[in-house]
Amino acid sequence: MDINKSIIGMVHVGALPGTPKSCHSLAEIIEQATSDAQKLEKGGVDAIMIENMHDRPYLNRKVGPEIVAAMTAVATKIRQVVTIPLGIQILAGANKQALAVGHSAGFDFIRAEGFVFGHMADEGMMNSDAAELLRYRKKIGADRIKIWTDIKKKHSSHAISADVSIGEMAKAAEFFLSDGVIVTGNATGEEASLNDVEAVKAVTGLPLIIGSGINEQNIAGFWPFADAFIVGSSFKIAGNWENEVELERVQDFMKRVSDLRKNS
Rank of each mutant, 00 (worst) to 15 (best):
L177F: 13
S25F: 04
M125Q: 12
F176N: 10
D2K: 14
V200D: 06
E248S: 12
I7R: 02
N4W: 12
I84L: 14
N186A: 14
L40E: 03
G167T: 08
T83E: 15
P207Y: 00
G180F: 01
V63P: 00
S234V: 08
A100K: 08
A172F: 13
A37P: 07
L16W: 05
R56V: 15
H12N: 11
A27Q: 11
E248Q: 12
T83A: 15
A69H: 00
A162Y: 10
E198W: 12
G213C: 07
I50M: 14
G167E: 07
A192S: 11
I110W: 01
S178R: 01
K153S: 13
M125V: 13
P65T: 02
G205K: 09
L26I: 09
A75V: 03
G102Q: 03
A142L: 10
A199G: 07
V81I: 08
K262L: 13
T188R: 07
K262G: 10
A75H: 02
D2W: 13
G211W: 01
G44S: 01
E31G: 03
G185Q: 03
A98G: 10
G64A: 03
D150T: 03
D252C: 11
D259Y: 12
K39L: 14
D259L: 14
P65S: 03
E174P: 02
T188K: 05
S264D: 15
I166G: 10
I145G: 07
T72W: 01
